[in-house]
Amino acid sequence: MADERDAERDAILAALTPVVDGIAATFGPVCDVVLHDYRNPGKSVVAVAGSVTGREVGGAMSEIGMRVLARGDEAEDDLNYVTRTRSGTLVKSSTMVLRDSTGAVFGALCVNVDVSAVTQVHGLLGALAGLDAAPAELPTTTFGNDIDSVVDALVDVHQSKQRGSWAELDRAERLELFGGLDSRGVFAVRGAVEQVAARLGISRASAYNYLSRARAAHDTSTGGPA
């Protein structure tokens, strides 16, 4: 049964591979399209066209993929959201989850369009028209071909929101850090707990303990099982 399901998923990915090139060709150099197989998070990219996010075949999922993986079969399409790459490029993206015939999520088709030039023109026209609206603060998304670099970047982002190093954080702040990483889907990736522990300079057991406590606190605050 598992072999049949894998064969079906392989067939869906194979059918979508030429679609990747077709979409990218339609939009031109401002667009890239990435096809993910989440059965292998560390090497989820099975097809890519374009270079907006710098992805390569055999590369890892981004933090967006981690969130999809964490939601499992409850994941939904996320369309037309705007984010910023770590290099500062503004990107409008859509992530469309892939399901097999049982409804199980196993991958995603992602379209990313560089809208930096459009944003600059919009700002220029606004200035000419006498409009002085402050641009909205956009989240920064880590796109990387190495899953370790994506996890490390997320840890760095959450640590930067705290007041200092791990040793300087109180218990509530430590739980907040682990809860924040968990909500971003970091711990849906195999081996992520050990990697986060190493990044923070704590033991594997301590990392699992803080993760467990953060999840318990989240379940209590949302009315879920404690």
Rank of each mutant, 00 (worst) to 15 (best):
R9M: 13
A49F: 03
T89I: 12
P225L: 13
A217Y: 10
G88F: 11
P135H: 11
V20G: 00
S51C: 02
G144M: 01
A24I: 02
K161H: 11
A75Q: 14
E137D: 06
I202F: 03
E173H: 10
D10W: 04
D114H: 07
D100F: 05
A24D: 01
R67A: 14
A117T: 12
R204M: 12
A136W: 08
K43E: 13
T83M: 11
D132N: 14
I202W: 02
A216I: 03
S93M: 10
R204G: 09
T26Q: 13
V45H: 03
A217I: 09
N145P: 00
P41T: 01
A117Y: 07
A117M: 12
I64M: 15
A7P: 01
E176M: 06
S62T: 09
I147G: 03
E63M: 09
T141E: 08
K92P: 00
S206G: 08
S44N: 07
A14H: 09
F106I: 12
A205W: 09
R215K: 15
R199E: 03
A108K: 05
N209S: 15
T17A: 15
G144W: 03
D156C: 04
D32Q: 07
G107L: 14
A75S: 15
Y210L: 15
V57E: 12
V68F: 15
L125K: 14
G107R: 12
T95H: 07
T220E: 13
H122M: 08
A117Q: 13
T17H: 10
A134M: 12
T119Y: 08
A205F: 09
F178H: 02
N112I: 01
T142L: 02
D219R: 13
G185E: 04
R215I: 02
V68C: 07
G164L: 11
F27N: 04
R86C: 04
S51M: 05
E137T: 04
